[in-house]
Every structure is written in C-alpha cells, then in structure tokens.
C-alpha cells in the first residue's frame, strides 16, 4: 500500500489521517492534526526537537513513519496541560528561564515529563541524562534542571497532600 489510513490516539483523542508512506509521525502531527508544537530541527534524529511520547516511550517523531505509528498512543507538548491548567513542569519552565528562543522547549518538556513519570526526585545527573538527546543552542541546560527539580518538588508535595487528604 502506498497510502495508508492511520489512526492514533493523540493526547487522549482518537485521530485519523490519510498518510502517504513517506510521511512521518512528525509531519502528520503538525500538518494533519495542526499540532505544530512539536518541531522539526533536523529530520534525522540528532536534535530532539521532535520528541513525543509514543506508547509510553520518548521517541524522535521525525524518524517514525506515520505508518509505524498506526494504532499508537501519542503525547505531544499540547497534551501536557490538563483542563486548561498548565502542568507544573510547564509553569516551572516559564518561571525559571529554562528556555530562550523556545524552539527546543516542546521536545524538552516531553522528555522531562517522561522522566518525572518514572522518577519523582531526579538528581541533576538524572535530568541531564534524560535530556541528553535534546539539543538546546540557547541555554546551558541548567535552567531545565532547575525547572524539572522545581516541578518535581511541587508534584511530590501535591502527592503528599493528596495522600494526607485521602487518609
């Protein structure tokens, strides 16, 4: 088949597109679904501007064929906020100058969000390892570390509160 009907769940919503085989998950997200938050920095998996979560794993969407993504669950930067409320990570990024031009930010946020979903108290090294595939030319990455640790702290205390309330 040269053209495929693909269906995927993006940020919790089922979407479909008709994708020529050469199209990537990145181009489908951006062009078919209008989710232009995820960026193309190199089209060859070297910069991480295109990072999304696919089936629970961070991937470079520029190198995933749309056909390969058929049937997948995808989370992009647009899916981090819930009910209009920014995720603590997004608030922390905005407040601590974890970006300058902002082009790497969507991919960076997704990588950091994925980190926090498996590590609620990451060290500086752990954050840097999680973003080792996210290239940023404007900052020196320390702002990202600060933002992630700040968000992690906020999430931990929110969880602690939730536990208390539950009790």
């Amino acid at each position: 088949m040269t053209d495929m009907d693909i269906r995927l769940t993006v940020n919790g919503r089922l979407q479909h597109a008709k994708a020529g085989v050469m199209r990537t998950l990145l181009t489908v997200l951006r062009e078919d679904f209008g989710l232009t938050g995820t960026k193309d920095g190199c089209s060859s998996g070297d910069c991480g501007a295109c990072v999304v979560v696919m089936n629970g794993q961070v991937v470079n969407s520029c190198m995933v064929l749309a056909a390969q993504a058929d049937g997948s669950q995808v989370t992009t930067v647009e899916g981090l906020a819930s009910n209009g409320e920014l995720h603590p990570l997004q608030r922390a990024f905005g407040g601590t100058w974890a970006f300058q031009c902002g082009f790497c930010t969507p991919g960076m946020l997704v990588s950091c969000h994925a980190l926090l979903s498996s590590n609620d108290n990451p060290s500086r090294e752990e954050v840097l390892t999680a973003i080792a595939g996210n290239f940023c030319r404007c900052t020196g990455y320390q702002g990202v570390v600060n933002a992630v640790q700040q968000a992690a702290a906020e999430l931990r205390s929110a969880n602690a509160e939730a536990v208390l309330q539950h009790d």
């Binding site: 998996g45 961070v58 991937v59 470079n60 190198m63 080792a132």
Partner: peptide, 9 residues
C-alpha cells in the same frame, strides 16, 4: 547508544 529516544526506537 545515542540518547533516550534512539534507545527507545
């Protein structure tokens, strides 16, 4: 190998 994304793919 590479970074987290490459290793996941």
């Amino acid at each position: 190998v590479g970074g987290p994304q490459i290793r996941n793919m």
